[in-house]
């Protein structure tokens, strides 16, 4: 489900009409990414057309934000937090290394079967329940190696 923004309540007579189209850019990029899995040249071009922006404008804005992907991604993006609070309770690097070894990929890479991408991210605002990681939009807290094993196994089954 593409949850991006809720603009349904805005009436046409809104005095803030200025820049409205441009303001929809992030939402449009989310919708495109949801549809195609990542933001290909084609997806970027379509967004640009719809919002009367240049391809360059759309591309440079998209590349500013880490959640917009200009490369194909695995079905499941595992995003491990390397923040200080996660590190202090034994998370961060050991978890990144564990997932990396388990899936045989380095951070930034995708498994050959296209199932998993490993990503290192910054504080997920779950420091009180660290170590934390995310898979796509889902947050996982208080992670252990066993919990990671189970999680990856479940995702593999789900994918079959």
């Amino acid at each position: 489900m593409a949850i991006v923004s809720s603009n349904s309540t805005t009436s046409a007579a809104d005095p803030l009409e200025d820049g409205r189209k441009r303001a929809m850019l992030l939402a449009a990029l989310y919708i495109a990414q949801e549809q195609f899995g990542w933001l290909s040249e084609e997806a970027i071009r379509r967004v640009a057309e719809r919002l009367d922006l240049s391809v360059g404008q759309v591309k440079s804005t998209a590349s500013f934000y880490t959640m917009f992907k200009l490369q194909p991604q695995g079905k499941y993006r595992i995003q491990v937090c390397e923040g200080l609070s996660c590190y202090l309770v034994g998370g961060a690097d050991p978890i990144i290394e564990y997932v990396s070894a388990k899936l045989g990929i380095q951070p930034g890479e995708t498994t050959a079967d296209g199932l998993f991408t490993l990503e290192v991210v910054q504080c997920l605002a779950a420091c009180g329940t660290a170590p934390a990681l995310k898979v796509n939009d889902e947050l996982y807290e208080n992670m252990t190696f066993t919990a990671i094993d189970q999680l990856i196994e479940r995702l593999q089954e789900q994918a079959e």
């Binding site: 850019l25 992030l26 989310y30 500013f64 959640m67 910054q122």
Partner: peptide, 22 residues
């Protein structure tokens, strides 16, 4: 409106830029 992964967008004027789609 949903941001898209950038700590600096918490700074109020950067947030306004992001709200404007930039």
């Amino acid at each position: 409106h949903r941001g898209a992964g950038a700590y600096i967008c918490g700074e109020e004027t950067a947030m306004l830029e992001s709200l404007e789609g930039k």
